[in-house]
Design a protein around this nucleic acid. Sequence first.
RNA 1: GCCGGCUUAGCUCAGCUGGUAGAGCAGCGGUUUUGUAAACCGAAGGUCACGGGUUCGAUUCCUGUAGCCGGCACCA
Length: 646
Amino acid sequence: MIELIFPDGSRRAFDQGASGRDVAASIAKSLEKRALLVRLDGQLLDLDRPLPGGGTFEILTRESPHALEVIRHDASHVLAQAVQELFPGTQVTIGPAIEDGFYYDFARDEPFSLDDLGAIEARMAEIVDRDEKIVREVWDRNEAIAHFKGIGEAYKAEIISDLPEDEVITVYRQGNWKDLCLGPHLPSTRHVGKAFKLTKLAGAYWRGDHRNAQLQRIYGTAWASEADLEAYLKRVEEAERRDHRRIGRAMDLFHLQEEARGMIFWHPKGWTLYRTVEAYMRRRVESDGYVEVKAPQIMDRGLWEKSGHWEKFGQNMFTCETTEGEELAVKPMNCPGHVQIFNYGQKSYRDLPLRMAEFGACHRYEPSGALHGIMRLRAFTQDDAHIFCREDQIEAETTKFVKLLNSVYSDFGLDLHSVKLALRPDVRAGSDEVWDIAEAKLDRAARQAVNMEVEPLPGEGAFYGPKLEFHLRDAIGRTWQCGTLQLDFVLPERLDAEYVAEDGSKQRPVMLHRAICGSMERFLGVTIENYAGAFPLWLAPTQAVVASITSDADDYAREVAAALKAAGLRVELDLRNEKINYKVREHSLAKTPVIAAVGRREAETRALAIRRLGSEGQTVLPLDEAVAALVAEAVPPDLARGALRG
RNA sequence: GCCGGCUUAGCUCAGCUGGUAGAGCAGCGGUUUUGUAAACCGAAGGUCACGGGUUCGAUUCCUGUAGCCGGCACCA
């Protein structure tokens, strides 16, 4: 007998060998009909698989989030079956469920075309309608290898060969189509449903390695219901509407052009936004005990060799040779420069922790395929800082940093979504003992600093040390990695950074590399998309437009604009010979937060009729009151907090 | 860098199977003085990304290159 503990806490015993279906049927016929899978001690199992033992037990129906993952996984199998039916000779590889959907990687000499997707979708629907039973089979390892080799599935055979000897080889069969798979799966293809859609074609390397063959990946999205699918497609549309490239063009913020790939031409409005964010960041780090510096843009190759960057990233640096034979490199990062400043003169333990910040303009020769709007560039500016400190100060500095980072994000309407710890990569500097210490320190510090789990990322650290990644979430739920904190025992060693300790001995400081925005450009891209261009008043490049209704009011309009400008607001004056409807529409589309229309009435009463972006009515206020209200609202959030405290 | 797609006026986009291009908006010139999301009229604007080929003739077909887009790889 096995004992199952149900979600309501009740316990019941079942015969050895009972399946999830048996259990569901014993509760209610209707439940058996709706059941797709079961969860035993947290592990998902096929409905018809005999339960291997007792434990906490749950029957999953279509509505369960865990079931959705399996629906997506099964959709990928249905996709693979459809492709193999339509395009014989195509090899299958792997096809997992992913966020919002699934993909499957195929090996086929001829490329799929976008036109094929419709036919494949239709065939998928047909397979769903066939309602093929999905059956789990345990195979002998060698037989499985021979079978997949025999039918020309070299990739599948390779996967099995690479599995550990004692691994149970399971093959799932749906109709006469079979796939090597760990499972679990739905009882039959009908349960995949029709709320799926193939979305895009892409190339992908076998096993994620660019030295391997390139496969063809077909992406799809799949949901428990049509309504969920619709909602998802709406969300995608919304994201497209918010695309920073589109908004950047519409609001005349910046442009990119071929002659400077991966670099931004900031237009006046975009640069105003940039400077506003930069000024804000400058205040935040200054008040958090940082000093700001500026190091040279171009430095001798020798320094980069010494730091170790030349060896690892020399291929990705912009370099030049002078007529006098010097070899120079444009800085791809700021740390070596900061160490030079640290090294100048003598530093005492009393100087630590020394927090050295720079809005550092960096250039990196990124692979052409990596470039993406203003999110991934070849010329970008880091809100960089290096904290030189003792080992025993690492945790306190990490906590301090995380507090600052959280506060900055919330000022931009963003939430910290997750924290990840990237651990030692294969190619790295420093001994394993040093890495052990570094990883442990950062892990502990991060756990203390944030009230959330810290997800380890094996092999993803920087070559000189482990890396904390701070992922944030924007207004429509997308996540971005911006903030980072990296622990570095290596660079101080390589560049001979030292301080004089209390006992007079020379000691090595530890360096913390850290950034909140990451790249200013990327953070601005995220901010643009987060607000969809409708910035809060303190960020808006143009905060208010004074629009005249008739030319009679021109003088008063000028006076109002001058008053707002004198009060420190960014104002535009629109005296064009256009209808007020036209002006309101135009400035609304330009996302100007405040439109002050002035006509004869306002001029006579010395008032201001203010229309706020996104609302239809107007508020009429005496001019000086209106100015005062707008000025108060336009104070950046950090200064507003300061004013409250003061 | 790799795989696939795209590139027509400042912007958004039409242009079937080859006969040197069209709209809306913006811009420009007028008329209109207007009350909260598009007043009216007019003229103008294009080496159809760039190079080569096929053809009597190429925006259209083939090919090469570049950029961009979607992924992959990369991301100090």
